[in-house]
């Protein structure tokens, strides 16, 4: 008798989910944001289909404001996995020069929410994997693993398909009939932050170096410690970037992602800090604070992942 560990059970479940999608969806895609959850999701996809490469492309919905380290790892990982990498930048946002310094919430809405919808429509994807976990945020806790979206990408939290056993309903109206309903699939639904870290260590998965502490140029803005990652960062008069030993618990657009001061330069030190710290992961992200507790739920109804 071989009692499976929690990581083995989680791995098996995620792989099972990915294979169901590969078998039942006509044009699946994996959303790849280059963060640690994406790294785990990509690794699981490679295991699920080995020795074949995963039978779907990677899609990066780019905002042009990610950390430079993220772009570098993104291109390398796609190549290692033998997968096609699609990068989508919202043309309208590009044209209007939408950026997090001047446009506030519009930045996230246009680059990420609208950009994602455009990309899914453009390529005609009918199933999209995302790396969201249920422990991240309260409205995520209620979302299904196969989360149905209307042709306009809306999510109706009160009308979700019941999900029993490990039987997932991947049926949807084909493109043309209702204009292309789709399904967002969350293979990491049942993983916690600690599970992700443990798995990264156990499997030796490569992640963006920004997760580990190192001296980096920083400024303080609105209670967040921001990294000055390139010359586009507008410094206030008299403001000087300060070198601090920092790391990131979560990665997004660099002007919106708060760092934590830390000396944790190895994975196990990062986990140690995580276990001893008492603030939840998304605190470093400006996005959840916009509209109080219901902010994320509202964003999701509008089509945000």
């Amino acid at each position: 008798m071989h009692s499976l560990t929690h990581l083995e059970r989680l791995e098996a479940e995620s792989i099972h989910i990915m294979r169901e999608v590969a078998a039942e969806a006509s044009r699946p895609v994996m959303l790849y944001s280059v963060g640690k959850d994406s790294a785990v999701m990509l690794h699981l996809a490679r295991k699920a289909f080995y020795p074949s490469p995963p039978p779907f492309p990677l899609l990066h919905v780019d905002t042009t404001w990610k950390f430079r380290d993220m772009y570098a790892l993104r291109d390398r990982m796609a190549e290692t996995a033998g997968m096609e990498l699609l990068v989508w930048r919202n043309p309208e946002a590009l044209e209007r020069g939408i950026n997090p310094f001047d446009h506030g919430p519009l930045h996230t809405d246009m680059w990420k929410t609208q950009g994602l919808k455009q990309a899914l429509d453009h390529y005609g994807f009918d199933a999209a994997f995302g790396g969201a976990r249920r422990d991240e945020e309260k409205s995520r806790a209620k979302e299904r693993i196969f989360s149905f979206r209307t042709a306009s990408h809306g999510w109706d939290p009160k009308n979700q398909r019941p999900e029993l056993w490990n039987l997932y309903n991947a049926k949807k109206a084909p493109r043309g009939q209702n204009g292309g309903e789709s399904i967002r699939v969350f293979p990491l639904s049942n993983w916690t932050e600690l599970d992700i870290w443990q798995y990264i260590m156990a499997e030796g998965i490569e992640i963006v170096p920004l997760y580990l502490a190192a001296p980096r140029p920083t400024v303080e803005r609105g209670g967040l410690l921001l990294m000055v990652d390139d010359e586009r960062f507008p410094l206030e008069p008299g403001e000087e970037p300060v070198m601090r030993s920092i790391r990131f618990r979560t990665l997004g657009c660099y002007p919106l992602t708060g760092a934590v001061e830390s000396e944790a330069s190895t994975l196990s030190e990062v986990v140690q800090e995580m276990l001893l710290t008492t603030t939840s992961e998304r605190q470093g992200r400006a996005i959840d604070k916009d509209e109080g507790g219901a902010g994320m739920e509202k964003k999701k109804q509008e089509g945000y992942f």
Partner: peptide, 19 residues
């Protein structure tokens, strides 16, 4: 009690998973 609507009503209305 996660979703906005149910926070107002003070009841849970669906299946939620906790860890």
């Amino acid at each position: 009690d996660g979703l906005a609507a149910e926070r107002e009503q003070g009841i849970t209305i669906d299946v939620a998973y906790r860890f």
